[in-house]
């Protein structure tokens, strides 16, 4: 599919928009529909779209395997360490109110980091699954 001009041009237009929209969904999740799960899936879908057009090898150059595998684990660790930060600051596990001097602000901070963790893990797992299936079939460009 590499030589298809229409696909390449449309992809070039759409992929940045998809990734940007994923970030919007991530950080605007407090006020509108959205959050870590959706943002992670959308970012992964954007990268998978790129790889459908330009091939797996080109995608692996941009987002290499070790980055994806690190993302899979890092998201869970971010989430868990937000909980631990609550304990260290004198609260319960996953209690966000102590993360800042103002409980409401602390809640916002906690929700933000938890959503980041979710998005990173989901995006990493989706990409890893796709890489695994796509690289299985042998010589694909």
């Amino acid at each position: 599919m590499r030589d298809d001009l229409v696909l390449r041009v449309v992809g070039r237009l759409l992929i940045p928009a998809i990734l940007l929209f994923a970030l919007y969904v991530q950080f605007h999740g407090d006020f509108g529909p959205g959050g870590g799960f959706q943002a992670g899936v959308m970012a992964a879908a954007g990268i998978i779209f790129y790889s459908l057009i330009h091939g797996l090898v080109a995608t692996r150059r941009i987002v290499p395997d070790w980055v994806v595998e690190t993302m899979v684990a890092a998201g869970v660790l971010i989430y868990a360490s937000v909980g631990l930060a609550g304990i260290l600051l004198g609260g319960h596990y996953l209690d966000y109110s102590v993360l800042s001097s103002d409980p409401i602000h602390g809640q916002h901070r906690g929700i933000f980091w938890v959503e980041v963790g979710v998005a990173v893990t989901v995006c990493g797992v989706m990409l890893k699954i796709y890489y695994m299936f796509a690289s299985r079939g042998g010589a694909e460009d």
Binding site: F37, G40, V41, V122, M126
Partner: peptide, 9 residues
């Protein structure tokens, strides 16, 4: 919401 993502995994 969480069930959907777990479902696809």
């Amino acid at each position: 919401l969480t069930a959907i993502v777990v479902g696809v995994s």
